[in-house]
Amino acid sequence: MTVPNHYYLILSAVLFTLGSTGVLTRKNPIVIFMCIELMLNAVNLAFVTFSRARGGFDGQIYAMFVMTVAAAEVAVGLAIIVSIFRERRNIDVDDVSELKG
């Protein structure tokens, strides 16, 4: 017996919400990044579910693009975090509230 589509969609909603709550509650920028990854993955799950529901693989291809963009985003984001850390030895987001170098 197959799993109904809306089970997957609700799971995706739960994961997305957990990710967004993590972004709101955590102060460590790396953990915030991880929560963003969690949200992206929740969206991927929804893409795959819709892709299966409608047949074809377009949702899967979208999910692949999401992964690629996520890879680029993580690389740049972590580079920013590393350079902030080099400068002030501390990367709490509350302390990095001004754009001055």
């Binding site: 109904p4 609700i10 909603a13 739960v14 997305f16 409608r54 047949g55 074809g56």
Partner: peptide, 26 residues
């Protein structure tokens, strides 16, 4: 967060019975 999951979940649940048409690619 609870509000968000409630909102999205309600939306998902309300369309649970519907089925999607198969796309041409499908």
């Amino acid at each position: 967060g609870v509000a968000l999951v409630g909102g999205i979940g309600w939306g998902m649940w309300s369309v649970a019975g519907l089925s999607l048409p198969v796309s041409p690619q499908g």
